[in-house]
């Protein structure tokens, strides 16, 4: 388990200081409003916006002027970023440092507004996406840098709706997903100072869910981690009444109907 360390005093910029609108088009474009009031930095510190997107290996980069004079570039097209979930990062870079030290960062910023092709606003901790790449696997949990996705095989689009409505689907899938993600969150711990990291958000969710609201145990105690996860998953199932719902649902449909 390796944590990356903020060893140079880089400061976090609250996400709400960067407001982004993505406009439909082919490719899409975006605009950003950056509010750096209260962030002490030299006037000539450089601003850079980066855009990534679930399902793309591309990082689009846009130089945005300086702290004293933020200047959007004329070309703000999101080439090669076709997925629904676009995330932005704002970097403030020390212009006087030849090694381009980061003075501040706002990571994983979601667009506040967007067209039909773009997911906007706050998002749950487990976005669900259809995927063309699962071959014969019905669903899979996929860990990306900033987010965990539940991928549904695009050959089974109805499964996405059933995840919301059918206990035979959600009560059998979600407990396993929660267990799997929490194990991964212990194995691949978030960096320091990363409240937006998926691990941090999942651990916070799980701590609140834990029957005794216990914080995650120490990273080195594997047995205690497993017990903590068991308690969280059990409470998750209890809170959503999975057993009762499954029992009622099984009265409506026999297992033979499904085979």
């Amino acid at each position: 388990m390796i944590k990356r360390v903020n060893s140079t005093g880089r400061r976090r910029i609250p996400q709400q200081h960067v407001q982004i609108e993505v406009c439909d088009g082919d490719p899409r474009s975006f605009d950003a409003s950056i509010n750096l009031a209260g962030f002490a930095a030299p006037d000539d510190a450089l601003l850079v916006m980066e855009a990534t997107c679930a399902g793309s290996s591309r990082v689009a980069r846009f130089e945005w002027g300086t702290v004293a004079s933020p200047t959007p570039p004329p070309d703000r097209l999101l080439h090669g970023l076709a997925g629904q979930h676009v995330l932005f990062t704002l970097k403030i870079i020390d212009a006087s440092d030849p090694f381009r030290k980061l003075l501040g960062v706002a990571e994983n910023i979601r667009p506040l507004k967007g067209g039909k092709k773009t997911a906007t606003g706050r998002q749950g901790i487990l976005p669900v996406e259809l995927s063309d790449d699962l071959e014969d696997e019905p669903w899979r949990v996929e860990y990306r840098t900033s987010e965990v996705f539940l991928l549904i095989n695009s050959k089974l689009p109805f499964l996405r709706d059933q995840l919301r409505s059918d206990p035979l689907v959600y009560a059998l899938i979600y407990p396993q997903v929660v267990r799997q993600v929490l194990k991964q969150a212990f194995a691949d711990q978030a960096d320091e100072d990363s409240p937006e990291a998926w691990q941090t958000r999942w651990m916070s969710f799980a701590s609140q869910l834990h029957p005794d609201q216990l914080a995650p145990p120490d990273e080195d105690d594997g047995e205690e981690q497993m017990q903590w996860i068991d308690a969280v998953v059990s409470q998750f199932c209890r809170q959503h009444e999975f057993l009762q719902r499954l029992t009622r649902r099984s009265g409506e449909t026999t297992w033979e109907d499904l085979s």
Partner: peptide, 24 residues
């Protein structure tokens, strides 16, 4: 990969030249 991942946390590595990155 680990070392770059750590450096990336504190530096904007994208535009560095090779001498600079090797130094870091």
């Amino acid at each position: 990969p680990l070392r770059i991942s750590q450096l990336e946390k504190n530096y904007d590595l994208v535009d560095l030249n090779a001498d600079q990155l090797i130094t870091l």
